[in-house]
């Protein structure tokens, strides 16, 4: 069962630093970006009252997430953050689903992807908070309810990044480990397709949605 901990990497020595790149993650992330750009191109190529199939799917995403963003933030602020929220969901959904195809691996199985996205959401939420409330009011919140709670409030904020990124990483990585071990135990017979359906499609969809919604709610907690 060596596959459990095997990672393909590229190593590079630049100016005395030893850099290691996770080759699978980079290639798969670029593939998904390409697929999403192609999807966007097909969806907007010939828009019309009678939509093509891609347009229908794109409209479904846009409408659902526009309503969710508008409910969580105000209408004009929703215009700023809606593209982020909608594309984050589409990216994560494709990331989590791509594992069901042979020889494809989920980029979200790598902690670097999820931690990167978690940090992105963290910085955007805090930037939004500082922008709407001003720095003084933003900083004052860390000294609530009493001033010496400040270190704990900071740790609490940082723990949000850990929990949001490890939730996605743990679910996707855990699913793939279970699929790998169970497939090995049953010699690939009968059970793996159901596991792919549950961990790839169902858990993948739910976790992509939860990640997106938590990013949105973190922004909305900061600006209100």
């Amino acid at each position: 069962m060596e596959e459990l901990t095997k990672v393909w990497t590229w190593s590079l020595d630049v100016a005395g630093f030893h850099l290691v790149f996770n080759a699978t993650t980079i290639v798969m992330t670029l593939t998904i970006m390409g697929l999403l750009i192609a999807f966007g191109w097909f969806a907007t190529r010939q828009t019309g009252l009678v939509p093509n199939p891609f347009q229908v799917v794109a409209e479904l995403f846009v409408e659902t997430f526009w309503n969710l963003t508008k409910d969580a933030l105000d209408e004009d602020m929703a215009k700023t953050y809606f593209p982020l929220i909608c594309s984050l969901f589409m990216f994560l959904l494709l990331c989590n689903w791509i594992g069901i195809f042979p020889y494809m691996e989920e980029p979200t199985k790598d902690l670097n992807t999820t931690l990167g996205l978690g940090l992105m959401g963290f910085f955007i939420a805090h930037y939004a908070g500082i922008k709407t409330k001003g720095f003084a009011a933003y900083a004052k919140e860390y000294f609530q309810p009493v001033f010496f709670m400040m270190p704990l409030n900071v740790i609490g904020e940082l723990a949000k990044v850990i929990s949001i990124s490890f939730r996605l990483y743990g679910n996707i990585m855990g699913g793939s480990i279970i699929i790998l071990v169970v497939s090995h135990l049953v010699y690939g017979l009968l059970i793996p397709p159901f596991l792919y359906a549950f961990f790839g499609l169902f858990v993948g969809t739910v976790q992509a949605f939860v990640f997106t919604m938590l990013t949105l709610v973190y922004i909305s907690v900061q600006v209100k």
Binding site: I162, V210, V217
Partner: peptide, 30 residues
């Protein structure tokens, strides 16, 4: 729809400490 969304967010945050436990386990293992 609002109930499903709120439920997923609520269960998601409820599981935070399970995720911390999982994180500590992974650190201990690797």
């Amino acid at each position: 729809r609002p109930v499903t969304t709120a439920m997923l967010v609520g269960i998601g945050t409820t599981q935070s400490t399970a995720i911390y436990g999982f994180l500590i386990s992974l650190i201990l293992l690797f």
